[in-house]
Design a protein around this nucleic acid. Structure first.
Lengths: 251, 251
DNA sequence: TGCCCGTGAGAGGTCGGACCACTTGAATCT
DNA sequence: AGATTCAAGTGGTCCGACCTCTCACGGGCA
């Protein structure tokens, strides 16, 4: 488990900080929501400077393991797990990920999530799903509100799947995809179709039909992708600039 | 471009650094392999202290976007993309991810990868796959070497899938899973089975049969999981390594 | 009594600038 | 020519001072 191997952590000291906290987490000394000592104290304990300690904490914060609150303290993250949620967008720009590739991943994950939810979902999840569908009906004319319930619907399915890793991955991909489309305004007709699709998904899941749930989700995402593509094709695309020499770039 | 989504970035200044570089990457000014100015210079340009700059760079490095090389410089990452590769293990410990959950994700991703590879793979990929299978034959009695080719085989399939995001996710999950089992010694008979499985997968992919490829991969991973479970259950009375010793903080 | 606001302790955030450690390649010695 | 040395350049660490943000305590006022 001392997995710094491929890790190529910044340096010795940050690695020391990370391992120290990692150990505390793995043996249960530190649990979600717990607070670590003030930086000045902690630095003294570890016999390193405050700056180095902060580097290590920053690393953990970037991974989503720690949460720093100015003026309050530093805590172990206690919300739902996040895997590279904030980095996918940037990595996409860097490596030239295409929207269809992200969508392909999303479809893969969400269809499986739907199937798993149909298999393992509990009554409590079904209840929430039903509520969200109802809310979508109620907010069919309010795009912003509708979107909130749409997101919650998918998130609940993820939770019902019983696989938090898959749920986290869905969150990551969805977020990156959402950033891509944030500027596009959904059309009312799209929401109408979307609503129907969600109802189908809900029924398949509640009925305990994995394959149907998977197919319904597949159809839903497929049409969502088509709508998104249609909207985006109407927009101007900025081309990537060409650069050959690998040298220092002026700021 | 936009203000970082819900981005709970550490602070204003780190956000400034991240956005500055993000912008450069998004408009193509910075590309993989490029070097950014020396910290002292760069800090002066951005009119912030070197410490703050380093915080921002550390954040980007943690996300896998930047690569810092002591005594040389700081570069934009130029290898294959990584999504939370180093964080999954820690997040697993924190949120209590189970091995079966990780395996479930791995199966989902790799089976899809195999199917996609069968659809989209190019001759070059097939050639490499064939070579790796041959190497596996040759190293059937050398666990360490065998493992290397095993990994390369799967990695090549990922590349052949034409979806770098999915490939990166596979890498992430595999790494985390590998950390769990690094101590277990594979048995010769397992490698024998494994080898057969790889041959089947290879043939299905080369033949352009997505469904067969998916099924073959499914079978392969299923038996791999069983073997892993068998090995781990065999070592009862040894639940977790005791890292109490390391609690004493190596100074 | 009870609400409001000032205030200070404590926590993280930023700073600058000295000094250490690592890489690299040019200058020097053999 | 080849091996060795060394200095410049770049990231790594440290110190210690000061700024900003939160929050709770407690006095003042209604």
């Amino acid at each position: 488990m001392q997995a710094d191997q491929a890790g190529i952590l910044d340096t010795q000291l940050t690695a020391q900080v990370v391992n120290h906290i990692r150990a505390k987490i793995e043996d249960g000394t530190l649990q979600p929501g717990d607070r670590i000592p003030p930086e000045r104290e902690f630095a003294k304990m570890l016999k390193i400077s405050r700056a180095s300690l902060r580097t290590g904490i920053g690393y953990l914060a970037a991974m989503g393991v720690m949460k720093v609150r100015h003026g309050v303290g530093t805590f172990v993250s206690d919300g739902p797990p996040e895997i590279g949620k904030s980095s996918l967008g940037l990595l996409g720009a860097l490596h030239g990920f295409k929207a269809w590739q992200m969508f392909e991943v999303r479809k893969l994950i969400e269809t499986s999530l739907a199937a798993l939810a149909a298999e393992r979902g509990k009554e409590e999840h079904f209840t929430v799903l039903a509520e969200e569908v109802a809310e979508m009906y109620a907010t069919i004319d309010d795009p912003a509100q509708y979107l909130i319930h749409d997101v919650r619907f998918h998130r609940t399915i993820a939770e019902a799947s019983g696989n938090p890793i898959l749920a986290a991955l869905m969150e990551t991909v969805s977020t990156a995809l959402y950033d891509e489309r944030r500027k596009t305004a959904e059309r009312a007709r799209d929401r109408k179709n979307s609503l129907e699709a969600h109802r189908e998904i809900y029924r398949a899941i509640r009925g305990g039909h994995p394959t149907e749930a998977r197919n319904a989700m597949e159809r839903h995402l497929h049409s969502a992708e088509s709508e998104l593509a249609a909207e985006q094709s109407a927009r101007v695309r900025k081309p990537r600039r060409e650069r050959k020499a690998k040298q220092t770039v002026p700021a």
